[in-house]
């Protein structure tokens, strides 16, 4: 049985979507910030693959078909951006200021903590681009000799953490304007945050996609300078 599942082209994708749908059901039942659909789905997939004896490698081979759609899905974010263009233009100063300050905070705190913890250079450059989208962060990290695995892990944990705690932080700090909400999600937790912000409103989603693009570009520009700092 396990062999059939290992070799199946469809089981991994089916399991992923099934786990996500179950997670959505749970979220509808208990509306707690801990009921994050991605997190719940991940836990469920890990448990089920362990139970039926599928290795992570085999699961990834099958589920990789879903990742194929990640690029077209990111391209789609242009549409809410276009729909909200008027509002984005009106509040461009606020959006850009928020993204710039947020990116500066992210990079600044990493430099500070890396020095404080005496992290070695490889680990430092692997963590530096953790707040931007995976493909961009990975390219930057590798250009300075970072470890791809650590960068990917840090980026994904950052994304999930943002989508897990973001709503609570916004409530705590009374960040309730949809534009500020979108800037926070896009700047702090890239595409995963944007997927979460889009749940709140189309405007928040659009602002979040704009923020993730700007944050990515700013990080890419200052990265060479910062990577030689520590």
């Amino acid at each position: 049985m396990s062999e059939i599942l290992q070799e199946s082209n469809f089981f991994a994708v089916m399991l992923t979507i099934f786990s996500y749908e179950t997670a959505l059901l749970l979220k509808r039942k208990w509306d707690s910030p801990l009921c994050n659909p991605i997190l719940l789905a991940v836990v469920q997939v890990i448990i089920i693959t362990k139970l039926v004896g599928i290795s992570n490698e085999n699961y990834q081979n099958g589920a990789g078909y879903l990742e194929y759609f990640l690029t077209p899905a990111t391209v789609c974010l242009a549409v809410p951006l276009y729909d909200q263009l008027k509002i984005l233009k009106r509040d461009m100063v606020g959006i850009l200021a928020g993204v710039l300050c947020g990116t500066a905070t992210s990079l600044g705190v990493i430099v500070l903590l890396a020095v404080l913890f005496k992290l070695d250079h490889t680990l430092y450059v692997s963590l530096l681009p953790k707040s931007i989208t995976t493909a961009m962060g990975l390219a930057l990290s590798e250009s300075s000799g970072g470890i791809a695995g650590v960068t990917t892990a840090a980026i994904i944990v950052t994304g999930i953490l943002g989508s897990l705690l973001g709503t609570s932080i916004c409530k705590l700090l009374k960040i309730n304007h949809p534009i500020a909400y979108g800037v926070a999600f896009g700047t702090a937790s890239h595409v995963i945050g944007t997927a979460k912000a889009s749940e709140q409103s189309q405007l928040a989603g659009a602002v979040s996609s704009l923020s993730l693009v700007v944050a990515g570009i700013v990080t890419a520009v200052v990265f060479p300078m910062l990577s030689s700092l520590h």
Binding site: A97, G98, C101, T105, L113, K130, L161, I175, A188
Partner: peptide, 19 residues
Amino acid sequence: LLIVTTTLGTFAVSGTVTQ
């Protein structure tokens, strides 16, 4: 600790500045 601090810090700063 680094990931949690930067993520929360970035969230708080970017959202507050924009708002």
